[in-house]
């Protein structure tokens, strides 16, 4: 059972109060996108064994979406942050690098 903190209403609660929404920071493709871009946006996923940036929704709380960094191999949660960001903020990257010093966000490269 994960214990998560919603960055919108600041409530800390058990995982059952939330709902996972898959990989975060996917860039939506517009009507002009190529087939490959749509495939990438809709289906292709990083699916890392390790640090995963992902979306969650506080469904049985404030109802807001937010982002979170979590390790898929150990289930350690590095912290949550607002959904209205294009990249993980510095304090999340710092928390991740305490555990994984060489970690780079794959989508940044």
């Amino acid at each position: 059972m994960l214990i998560l903190t919603c960055p919108c209403c600041h409530v800390t609660a058990e995982e059952t109060e939330f709902h996972g929404g898959g990989e975060a920071h996917l860039k939506r493709v517009g009507p002009d996108g190529a087939e490959g871009d749509f495939e990438s946006y809709l289906f292709m996923r990083q699916n890392p064994k390790g640090v995963h940036l992902e979306r969650w929704r506080h469904v049985y709380g404030c109802g807001k979406w937010f982002h979170m960094a979590r390790d898929t191999a150990t289930l350690e949660v590095f912290g949550s942050y607002a959904a209205q960001t294009l990249a993980p903020p510095d304090h999340i990257v710092d928390a991740i690098r305490k555990r994984h010093p060489d970690w780079q966000w794959p989508a940044a490269s």
Partner: peptide, 13 residues
Amino acid sequence: DGHNNYTQRGSFH
């Protein structure tokens, strides 16, 4: 489980 996961155990709930 409702999230990406490589732990080979599964959540209790």
